[in-house]
Design a protein around this nucleic acid. Structure first.
Lengths: 209, 209
DNA sequence: TAGATTGTTAATCGATTAACAATC
DNA sequence: TAGATTGTTAATCGATTAACAATC
């Protein structure tokens, strides 16, 4: 049994993966823990410890083989496992995320968008249809049949004042994870996990520290 | 001299602020550390400790006065201090962030966007003009005169493969902070601070843990 | 009063950094 | 060989949680 990777290590490993993609682009074959650590301004033993979690190993005196390490990280973090999501709120941010090509690169597929604005219903965003939020239950079960995969992730991009109400509507669906981009703290049952993207908090942390 | 608030506390305080905004909307006058902690599923002494950093105090047996605590957090985190930013990359995400009203609520003002696509140059996004990236130096100094405030923040929303090159162009400007939304790790001089928003890392952390 | 809640100190826990033997 | 680098253990640091006296 492989042991779980702590959240902080997951985030760092994703950054290592960005660096390794760059190595591929530039035909760099090997990279050392010190080089990675230098780019991220962290400790090199941190890097080696994180890498050890991915069941791969480097070579003394040489470092890690970039392509191999990249694959190991993809495996460990499940980049290749397809994940399906709904976007709740087809405003500027919601539509931008639906069009965001990076998500596809990392296995996240946007299945549909939902909104309440009649002008938006039935429009397409990057080939995905916008449905009225009242259709959530219906689509949720239909998509289940079509993909043979439940949609368990909701990306919440409604205005802050509407966030709690939207979260409550999600209880009708098969959603288990809410990725919350709104400036609101949600109150949901224990079986639903919420991740607060908290853009303003990140921003303030960044400029104040 | 007020002591600096640690990054993790800044992020939590921002979440408390969201909750307090909700209290205002619902005319709730008082809130206890236990109530806040319950919503965020954290420890109540954590909440009290964070609040203590904001030079305000609650009342035994009653909790905190919501409006007062909200103000104290705004003061401590500098929500009212205006901050100006450029957006580098007027693609979907860049344009969405330029239109994002939440930023304005927290004092972040987008002054201009930059891109290389001729079709985008001179268009307006939410009333802000898109300039060619080659104009960066010029606009950077001009805005300085107009606002009597340097633009020190760049929000980087170009494709990952273009990120490093864009970051290097920023060295010509007065930018001190790069809020990096791209899937790339940047290599910049020590006097520039980079915050990796790392959306994919956040997402993977969330779904794997 | 009894019960609830703050503010803060002490204890615990986890994450980061230092150190170094093993290796090529 | 000498120098560089990994993998891992031990030491340090910081953040979270527990506990409780003070207070209303």
């Amino acid at each position: 049994m492989v042991k779980a990777i702590p959240g902080k290590a997951v985030k760092r490993l994703t950054l290592y993966h960005y660096i390794l993609s760059d190595c591929t682009r530039q035909n760099v074959e090997h990279i050392s823990s010190q080089q990675i650590a230098g780019l991220l301004q962290i400790d090199d033993s941190q890097v080696r410890k994180d890498i050890a979690l991915c069941q791969t190993s480097g070579r003394t005196n040489v470092g890690y083989k970039a392509a191999e390490l990249k694959k190991a990280i993809e495996q460990a973090l499940g980049f290749k496992e397809k994940k399906s999501a709904f976007i709740i709120g087809a405003g500027n941010l919601g539509r931008a995320l639906a069009r965001h090509t990076d998500f596809q690169d990392y296995g996240l597929d946007i299945v549909a968008l939902f909104d309440t604005d009649p002008a938006k219903i039935d429009t397409l965003v990057n080939g995905r249809k916008v449905f009225h939020i009242s259709e959530l239950f219906h689509i949720s079960t239909r998509e289940n049949l079509v993909n043979k995969q439940k949609v368990e992730i909701a990306i919440l991009t409604v205005p802050g004042a509407a966030a709690q109400k939207s979260a409550e509507l999600l209880l009708q669906s098969q959603i288990k994870y809410i990725w919350n981009f709104t400036p609101a703290v949600l109150s949901v049952p224990d079986n639903i996990r919420v991740y607060n993207e908290n853009l303003m908090g990140n921003f303030l942390d960044f400029t104040k520290n």
